[in-house]
Design a protein around this nucleic acid. Structure first.
Length: 302
DNA sequence: AATACCATCAACCGCGCGCTA
DNA sequence: ATAGCGCGCGGTTGATGGTAT
């Protein structure tokens, strides 16, 4: 199907925003709230495209934005989340209060990429740049590595994984295919022959992730409904693998717009019978809640 | 002082997804 | 079932400021 332009481009301003435009946008959103970006420019008296207004608000004008440099903790968190999620900047941003996807994306491209390269890491794969050596990792060494990781997960408590889930989790960790753990900090050159205890290596940053079997089922859930939902969830993640196992990432403010989106969170999806106003209130509250994010594991299932 | 080069980041663009008529 | 719309996302671009020569 054809696609209509997002707005009338002939009569819109482009480029940097003026102070007056900012003030108009802020005043309008304060009065009427976010949303309806397409009609907002006209209503607010702005000669801007709706998308441009949205971007300006989200990336620059929102009152809850944290300005200033990224901390070392934020750096490490971004690296870890990128390792898990890839270039899903909005999801990563959901884990960093006050930071926007655009900001993180820019920061990644200008700072963190270089930082990882300096560590001898590939910023895309989070593996050592010497991938040939990594591929030749002896099976025994790999097994030892994975055992370390599983033990650490157990020691961390709360996550009782099936052996194959442990394998999957280990596979998610770049360490699983590395001759030596390369999650080195600046004072630890990559390629050290003896991997330090995984409990420190892998769990030094609490990502608040939980592992569970998909679909996430609450007591009292109708099994048929759960089954149906599992199918729907799989179809919008990675084209429905045959696997039923999933990594369920319980992320605070992961980026979902509605309760229940992406997964059956304990916070519960808003019922369609709930009045619109109540749903909106729930939606607002939900941004401060925990959500679960499901994605099928690589390479099949249990 | 002038110029070139580089780094940063705000903003734009195109596309995909979900919703609805 | 399908077309159209609105929104959000990720990649890219371009303006600007800083630094090196």
């Amino acid at each position: 199907m054809g696609r209509s332009p997002c707005c009338e481009k002939a009569h819109t301003n482009k480029g940097a925003w003026t102070k007056e435009e900012d003030q108009r946008l802020v005043a309008y959103i304060k009065a009427h709230g976010e949303g309806c970006w397409r009609s907002l420019p006209k209503a607010a008296g702005l000669l801007r495209c709706g998308k441009s207004c949205r971007l300006r608000w989200i990336n620059y004008l929102r009152p809850d934005l944290k300005r200033g440099n990224f901390t070392e903790e934020e750096d490490e968190l971004i690296i870890k989340l990128h390792e898990l999620l890839g270039n899903k900047w909005s999801l990563i941003a959901g884990r960093l209060p006050g930071r926007t996807d655009n900001e993180i994306k820019n920061y990644w491209n200008t700072h963190i990429k270089r930082k990882l390269l300096a560590r001898g890491m590939d910023p895309h794969t989070h593996r050592p740049l010497n991938a040939v050596a990594a591929a030749a990792m002896p099976q025994q060494l790999r097994a030892v590595h994975e055992r370390h990781f599983a033990a650490a997960a157990q020691a961390a408590g709360g996550h009782h994984l099936q052996p194959q889930q442990q394998d999957h989790l280990a596979a998610l960790s770049s360490c699983s295919a590395e001759p030596a753990c390369s999650h080195s900090s600046d004072d630890e050159p990559a390629g050290s022959a003896t991997p330090p205890p995984p409990s420190r290596r892998h769990l030094s940053i609490d990502l608040n992730l939980s592992i569970s079997l998909a679909p996430y089922q609450q007591p009292g859930d109708d099994p048929a409904a759960v089954k149906q939902e599992a199918a729907s969830t799989a179809s919008h993640t990675h084209n429905a693998t045959t696997s039923t196992s999933a990594v369920c990432l319980c992320l605070n403010r992961l980026g979902f717009q509605r309760p229940g989106e992406g997964c059956r969170c304990g916070a519960a999806a808003a019922s369609s019978s709930v009045p619109m106003q109540q749903q909106q209130q729930q939606q607002q509250a939900s941004t401060q809640r925990m959500f679960r994010f499901t994605a099928p594991l690589e390479g099949g299932g249990l």
